[in-house]
Deep mutational scan, measured.
Amino acid sequence: YQDQEQRILKFLEELGEGKATTAHDLSGKLGTPKKEINRVLYSLAKKGKLQKEAGTPPLWKIAVS
């Protein structure tokens, strides 16, 4: 689980600052079920590491501290 968090954070960091992506996109790029990706995304957002942008589907990006 920790491993997934690292992979997602790394992927988003590599996208570049301010760039956002969807759970669907992450799921495809990382070869992980979207349900699992979503769980990790919401967990990271709760920890303040990610920012969720409203929309359908929601967009995710690295939180700027």
Rank of each mutant, 00 (worst) to 15 (best):
D3S: 08
I62H: 06
L15V: 07
A45G: 08
Y42L: 09
K19S: 13
L50A: 12
A54K: 08
N38R: 13
L9M: 03
Q6C: 03
Q2K: 14
V40L: 15
A20W: 10
K35V: 07
A63N: 11
G28A: 08
T32H: 14
E53T: 10
K29Y: 12
N38M: 10
R39A: 11
E14Y: 05
A20K: 08
K49R: 14
Q2P: 05
L41A: 01
K35D: 08
V64N: 13
K35S: 11
K35N: 13
D3F: 14
Q51L: 13
A23Q: 02
K35T: 09
L59E: 06
K61W: 02
E13Q: 12
A63P: 13
K35E: 09
K47Q: 11
T21C: 15
E13A: 11
G16R: 02
S27P: 00
N38A: 03
D3A: 06
G18E: 08
G48C: 03
L44R: 00
K47M: 10
G55E: 04
L15D: 05
A23D: 03
Q2F: 10
L41M: 03
G28F: 14
L30T: 06
Q51I: 15
V40I: 15
E14N: 12
T56V: 10
A63M: 06
K29M: 13
G18W: 03
L41Y: 02
Y42V: 09
E14R: 09
L44K: 00
Q4Y: 07
Q51Y: 12
P58G: 06
G18M: 05
I8H: 00
V40D: 05
D25V: 13
G18A: 06
E36Y: 11
G55I: 02
G55A: 08
L59D: 02
P57F: 02
L12W: 02
E14T: 10
K49L: 14
L26Q: 00
H24P: 03
T32D: 05
A23E: 03
Q6G: 10
K34N: 06
G31P: 02
Q6K: 14
I8P: 00
T21Y: 07
L26D: 00
G28E: 04
L44S: 01
S27D: 01
G31H: 15
L12M: 14
G28R: 14
K10A: 07
I8E: 01
E17I: 06
K10V: 04
E53Q: 15
V64Y: 05
G48V: 00
V40Q: 10
K61Y: 05
L50E: 00
V64W: 05
S65P: 15
K10M: 07
L41Q: 00
I62N: 04
G18T: 06
Q2D: 06
T21S: 08
